[in-house]
Structure formats: structure tokens, C-alpha cells
Amino acid sequence: MRRSTKLCFLLFAMMALALPQHLAAQKDLQISKVFDIYGKKKGVTMVELSGEMLGDYNLSLFKSIVINDDPGAGDFIRKCLAKDQEGAKKVKQVISSGNLSTIILQLPRKGRLNRLILYNATSSGYKITLVYLESSDEADDILNLLLKKK
């Protein structure tokens, strides 16, 4: 019995050490708080994909959150984005009625990964979408994949 306990502990420790690095990749960003705080609230849809599901798109991590009817969330997200855009390249920014409605940020590389943040809010603030992406592809290629017309 004692031997199996040690074996279980050893296996658990090995699995913990082998967790993919991308699980903590966005933790250095302020927007990670958005996913943590709003991810399980009513009226919110959060999606996180990694690994094989994204292989065809050359993405290593895709994380999105859509928040409906929560004006306070918009203010909080814009504050987080303001911090995260320090050192980032603004690919696109749209201001509508004095408020940020769309921004695409290319963050500094993290190792071999290019990182992007996409934010969009309706003019009424009724619907907010925030997306975080990681890929070994160049940022332009990622954006072309995402924004290409069908």
C-alpha cells in the first residue's frame, strides 16, 4: 500500500511539472484578470482551446470571452488593456463616441510565440468580446487567418 502511495505521488508530481507552459502564458497580462473574474458569471461565454484542436490554424492557445450587458466589465477591461498595451504594437484601434470600441494589440514575443489581444465592444457596450491568441506564426499571418473574408 505504501509503495502505491509513493507511485501516485510521483506520477502526480511528474504530471504537474509536465503541464504545458501556455497555461500560464497570459498570466503576466492584466487581461488574465478578466478571464478569471468574469469567466464563470451569468451572461458570459468563455472558450479556451489549445493543443491539437488548434493545429490546423497554427495556434497554440485561443482564449475568448464574450460578456453581455455588463457596463462595469467594459470599464474594467479597458483599464486592463491600457496596462497591457504598454510595450505592445497597436495594429488597429477604433474610438467611438470617446470610448474604445476596437483594438488589436501585438504583444512582445514570449519565447517563440507571437501574442495578440483583440477587443471589440458594441457602441452601447451591450456586448464585449475579448480574445487572446498565441502562435509561432507571424502576427500578420494570424490576423489574415482571423480576419479574412469568407
Rank of each mutant, 00 (worst) to 15 (best):
L19Y: 09
I67E: 04
S32I: 01
L23W: 15
M46A: 06
D84S: 01
T129Q: 14
L118S: 10
K127W: 08
M46N: 02
Q106I: 02
V34G: 04
D84Q: 04
N144Y: 11
D137Y: 06
T129L: 11
G74D: 07
F12W: 13
T45Q: 14
S97A: 13
D75H: 14
M46R: 11
E138M: 09
V66K: 14
L143F: 10
T45P: 06
I142W: 01
V44D: 13
G72K: 13
C80G: 00
V91N: 07
G87A: 03
Q30S: 11
A18N: 14
K150F: 02
A73S: 11
I95P: 04
M53I: 05
S135I: 12
L7Q: 13
L100N: 05
K41F: 10
D75F: 14
N144Q: 11
L116Q: 03
I37L: 06
I104L: 08
L81G: 06
D28A: 05
R109E: 12
F12M: 12
C8Y: 14
L143A: 03
R115K: 09
F12K: 06
V47K: 14
G87F: 09
F12T: 12
I103C: 01
K42N: 10
C8E: 14
L145I: 09
M46L: 10
A121W: 00
T102A: 04
K89H: 15
L130T: 01
L54F: 03
V91K: 09
L105Q: 02
I95N: 10
L19N: 09
P108E: 08
I128E: 07
N120K: 15
G51Q: 00
S60I: 04
V44I: 15
K90D: 03
K33V: 01
N114H: 07
L146D: 02
H22E: 08
P20T: 10
D69L: 09
G111I: 04
L29E: 05
A25Y: 08
K83E: 14
P20C: 05
K41L: 15
K89C: 07
R109I: 03
L107E: 01
M53A: 05
L147Y: 09
K149N: 04
Y132I: 03
F35W: 10
M46K: 12
